[in-house]
Design a protein around this nucleic acid. Sequence first.
RNA 1: GGCGGGUUAGCAAAGAGGUUAUGCAGCGGAUUGCAAAUCCGUUUAGAGCGGUUCGAUUCCGCUACCCGCCUCCA
Length: 458
Amino acid sequence: MSLHLYDTWTRSLREFTPLKPGAVGLYTCGPTVYNYAHIGNLRTYLFEDGLTRVLRMNGYIVNHVMNITDVGHLVSDGDDGEDKMEAGSRRTGETAWTIAALYTEAFRADLKSLNIVEPTTWCKATDHIAEQIAFIQAIEKKGYTYVTSDGVYFDTAKQASYGHLGRLDIAGLQGGARVDLGEKRNATDYALWKFSKPEDKRQMEWDAPWGRGFPGWHIECSAMAHKYLGEYFDIHCGGEDHITVHHTNEISQSEAAYDSRLSNFWMHGYFLLTNDAKMSKSAGEFLRVKLLVDKGYDPIAYRYLCLTAHYRSQLNFNWEALDAAQTALDRLRQNVHSLGAPGPTPNAGYVTKFIDKLNDDLNFPQALALAFEVSKSDLPNAEKKATLLKFDEALGLGFANWAPKTVDVPANVQAVADARWVAKNAKDWAEADRLRGELTALGWAMKDGKDGFTVTPL
RNA sequence: GGCGGGUUAGCAAAGAGGUUAUGCAGCGGAUUGCAAAUCCGUUUAGAGCGGUUCGAUUCCGCUACCCGCCUCCA
């Protein structure tokens, strides 16, 4: 089947056809680099990585743009909280610029550890201040802005189309508003430009026609997506939380400036839950890839775990599930490795079936199940291997480069093992068992094979 | 308060109106001097109540519970 993707804009599955034949313009909302990414954040990037891999498998050239938010993202409460970068700076004593560089590098290392293909273009908000100011001016020219004592705001009441993506019920919103409006005219109005307060002594601030300050959060994505992908491109992605506010406002800005809803498809990855609650940076558990590694897991096991659930379902993380993923991954890799050299062509029937599953809105759980079916099938080894390597172009589990870990065996351990092998072959079971005990005491396990043995640390 | 999603076996999690999801764990067997690994087989399902249907875990309704967004957020 041809590629079908779920579009949040229409709330339905739609056939994907690129706006320009053969090429796909993709924008994915990147991290705010004020802290490390947790594995919940990374689930969304894994979903987007799966998407780009499937697009490429369908033969498209993907122009993937991801932003780095290094300014303007406020800590709390609507539009009057503290800037996250400045807060991070105060917390650590480093400059805001150093913080941004540090966490950007950490983020890229996390992506790499999960075998996520990097975007073709990275763009930083602070490198595009001029574009953002120009974008705000375009919106201003159309008459959608107003100025308060603390910034320039978008007047959402003037935009009849506002809120379609999130299916916002504006009246209902106002009834339950939890945030003080301040000088904002409407609950849904949002900041385009914020003025520096003299007492804040900001490290990141710029001159603009309305006054010295910094850009609002939503404007960076609209401005940079516009710059790198044009007024209307194929797919825009982010986490499910972006549906009602961030993406709604990106669309709002773009419709105001140049009458475009920015992207043909809007896709959203759903949250990772821990203990049946959202994992968040501001509260509760904060699991980083580093913690998984410290606990002895391969980061790819986390990737595997994410593949077992559909991107539009929330995934409930627990350690038992990660254990299961690690074990399954190890066995699958070992199996693929043991198949030897791949043949020239994968099995066409299985590949078609595989792509069909992925083309049905990225059904990775079923695609993965198919990988197990192939692994257990009676295809010749070379063809089986070629097929599974082909699958891995989408799965990204790194089959091609994986090999069992080789360990250096200390000479004394090797000597005991050799002695036990001799005893075993002489059917001297008492001696063989005694030497096995000796190896255990040394911290090593010995596994007998048909023609030899292996020793591994316990 | 408004809007949206969910409830599947021990755990995680899919599809499909009637035919084994899958993985991990468990259990049984083969193999092994014993182990380990591997292979084969296999037990546990679909919140409750009602409706539609020859047939529903799958469609519809109600109830209960859970989660997300509406506020920084992946």
